[in-house]
Design a protein around this nucleic acid. Structure first.
Lengths: 333, 333
DNA sequence: CTGAAAGCGCTAACAA
DNA sequence: TTGTTAGCGCTTTCAG
């Protein structure tokens, strides 16, 4: 059914090895036979079997990527960044997407296992889980790996992530400097190390101001516009409402803004709003959204860079890279 | 370096075949030996080599997917839909992303070639190109394939796409019914069969109204908020401006809305605006956006369904599925 | 219940 | 310049 080198060899009247040499542009082959082989290959519509080739080779020049749900723009951007870098440096990528978002450690472990089974040279992971089982599984992973967008506790591996702690700290400090007293932070669910890092960042800013004078609350919220809107509406109806709301994500912040306006309140007069990511829409919102910019594609690019450097032996220690946030002050604060 | 079945066999004192039987849950094996094998496998940290396994098998239960740029939400959604369906039906997927968006046929052909080399059982394609070389290459593709989101001229293959023609026609007809006379349609670039289909749809609606009374123009525009905004601003400054603007995409429509407002005009009083896709933000816009809803994930799901049905022999003719649009009338028209 | 032999498609090492 | 031999890790077939 599928045409192989053997078929070409038979047709041309040479051995399989000669065919291999012709197809792979090896030296030591007569220009004439080579041409004949190439011609019949095309004629027969031959496609080399990459599986077989890789089975022989010690290295596959392929890296595996595990990513939760690429419909999330942040993940899509990370994926793009690392895939492109890998490709530019001559590696193929195999992407494994997770479907049961946020709950199934087994799915995540299975994805890793499958990738290893495909004999990837290394792994780029954007974990949704950071519990014991996951860490443990990683500990006897037979190939190098780099974590993206997460900074796990107690795992001495390479990672590249945005500095969530610093970003959230800047945002909170900015609000406090402008006289806000009661902050409310809408964090995403499920909780990951990036969530914890941002919470820590806010707390740090609070500490600088003395925790008696100011206060901060944290509430989990789904990461859609609709959910953020609903949540914000209910928060604003409470007897003592916050005078500043930080959202996990710009899209959520847009929902919050709308909720504030719909409640008959003013931005930033009554309630200040801060987003995160600086998506294109942030600047177009009315009022334009104050937010923290993170260079997402850089996470992927650098992670791929670290992994490939490791594979090529130009680095060996665990690289731990934090990418700097940037506060973009617009008109919601 | 990498532990194989041979290592386990040696350790337990059985043959490789027995190990294979144990690992694959085959019958005809002593429960006791099986357990010992399983234990040592775990102990040795064994990972089956999928490459080798597939090399033997006639089928890989894997499908290949080629998609332009998954940062585009539409593509991400399609990808999600087809990956999930494939997975649910017991197939693995290999995704190949394109980077040089819109221009490089070679990149697209190479992606297909690599996938075939990996011996995927079938292909799901979302082409950016529909020129002769591409069609030709597809014509001697050795595995079944289904096109997603495109409806190519003169290629008798299966495809699943949204009915762009009908969607655009509904939108245009709706505008004409409400008395609009001068439509302007901002289409995406590069041009694909879906672009052509929508243009055709608008023209058809125009024809129904008699082309003397009304007119329609078409202009290409980048698919970002910023580009759409800039384009709309310049359009509105022309001496004879349109009284309705259709955008390729909701995000672009949001930019158009903002441009209209910033120009001191009213929506829909002076200019009506229609988007496409019905993203979450559409309903939250002010004024809420009239748009055409397309069930994007269904494209992926159905495409995967058709392909797998073909692979499993339950269908053989070329399936040609058009997914129905739905006009969502809100307050911009 | 278990093992020996063969082969998937390809390439590296050696020999002619 | 070309071919022979061997083997990557696994599974299928058939014999014990």
């Amino acid at each position: 059914m599928n045409v192989t080198m053997k078929d070409i060899a038979r047709r041309v009247g040479v051995s399989v090895v000669t065919v291999s040499r012709a197809l792979n542009d090896k030296p030591d082959i007569d220009a004439n036979t080579k041409q004949r082989i190439l011609d019949t290959a095309r004629q027969l519509n031959y496609w080399p079997n990459i599986l077989a080739r890789r089975l022989r080779a010690k290295t596959t020049r392929t890296i595996g990527i595990v990513i939760p749900d690429m419909r999330d723009p942040v993940f899509a951007e990370i994926l793009f960044g690392c895939s492109k870098t890998a490709r530019d440096r001559g590696y193929q990528v195999i992407v494994s997407m997770l479907f049961k978002r946020g709950y199934d450690v087994d799915e995540e472990l299975e994805a890793i296992q499958t990738l290893i089974g495909k004999r990837v040279d290394g792994l780029l992971l954007q974990p949704e889980h950071e519990d014991r089982r996951y860490i443990e599984a990683l500990n006897n992973c037979p190939v190098p790996y780099v974590l993206m967008n997460r900074k796990p506790e107690g795992l001495a591996c390479s990672f590249v992530t945005h500095d969530h702690r610093k970003g959230a700290c800047c945002a909170a400090r900015h609000l406090l400097q402008r006289g806000r007293k009661r902050l409310l932070f809408l964090v995403r669910f499920p909780t990951t190390s990036s969530v914890l890092a941002r919470i820590e960042g806010v707390k740090r800013a609070m500490a600088e101001y003395g925790s008696r004078a100011v206060e901060a609350e944290f509430e989990a919220c789904g990461d859609t516009l609709t959910e953020a809107y609903a949540k914000a509406r209910s928060i604003l109806e409470r007897e003592s409402r916050p005078d500043a709301i930080l959202a996990w994500e710009d899209i959520m912040a847009l929902g919050v803004c709308r909720a504030v306006l719909d409640a008959g309140l003013e931005i930033p007069g009554d309630v200040a709003v801060v987003g995160y990511n600086d998506i294109e829409l942030a600047a177009f919102n009315s009022p334009p959204l104050t937010t923290v910019r993170q260079k997402i594609s850089e996470i992927g690019e650098q992670a791929a860079g670290v992994l490939l450097d490791t594979l090529e032996g130009s680095t060996n220690g665990a690289e731990r890279i934090l990418i700097e946030p940037e506060l973009i002050v617009r008109r919601t604060t």
